[in-house]
Amino acid sequence: MRELVCIVCPNGCTLSVDEQTLAVTGNKCRKGVDFAVAELTCPTRTICSTVKTVFPEAPVLPVRVSKEIPKDKIFDVMAEINKVILDKRLSRGETVIGNVLGLGADVIATSSVLVKKS
């Protein structure tokens, strides 16, 4: 048995997973089962960061991956994110890096701060 804390929502359920059968208990919803099974087979995470820009009013723009990536690729994706110097005024949801490292996830802008007239 392995004890996990579900990070999917604020409930933060304490889950018990059988390492052989992958049977999950302690979850309040279906997402807890998916999370626990993924944790024991291929754990994934979302990552949020910033990319540098050439624009003085916003020297960095917040970004995130469009879908979860394998946990062991977090620092590889961070390295890609840190290579970017953005010179286009992207708005929220637009792609900064397409299919990052072939993982099937895009790095997308999470703010329209560069296109807002203030």
């Binding site: 979302t46 949020c48 917040p62 995130r64 929220r92 999470t110 703010s111 329209s112 701060v113």
Partner: peptide, 10 residues
């Protein structure tokens, strides 16, 4: 949805 802070605010 799981939004970031700027996405929620915007």
């Amino acid at each position: 949805e799981k939004l970031s802070g700027p996405e929620y605010a915007e």
